[in-house]
Amino acid sequence: MTAKPDRGRVELDSQECKGCGLCVEACPPKVLHLSSHLNHYGYHPAAYDGAGCTSCGICFFVCPEPGAIVVLRLVAA
């Protein structure tokens, strides 16, 4: 038996992220964190915990990089 899938999913481009942390702060279900590793430019990029996203889109709007975050929503079967 499989677990019920999350309502949403978030994809973060670790190479575009500047590690400002606004998405981590803003995320209502608190499912984002800053990685411990450094990206190409020397920032700790934001990353998805892997579960719990509601596809609310808040992280997309607070992110100052126009292309760093893509939010997806579960399509009803």
Binding site: P5, G8, R9, D13, Q15, E16, K18, Y41, S55, G57, F60, F61, P64, E65, P66, G67, I69, V70, V71, L72, R73, L74, V75, A77
Partner: peptide, 28 residues
């Protein structure tokens, strides 16, 4: 397998790659 649809992504009126930028063309 669950399927997902994109709800929020980079606007179409923004360049995918910032070619006019001298360097770091993926970032603002």
């Amino acid at each position: 397998m669950a399927s997902y649809t994109v709800t929020h992504e980079k606007a179409e009126c923004l360049y995918e790659i910032y070619e006019r930028k001298p360097e770091l063309k993926h970032q603002t």
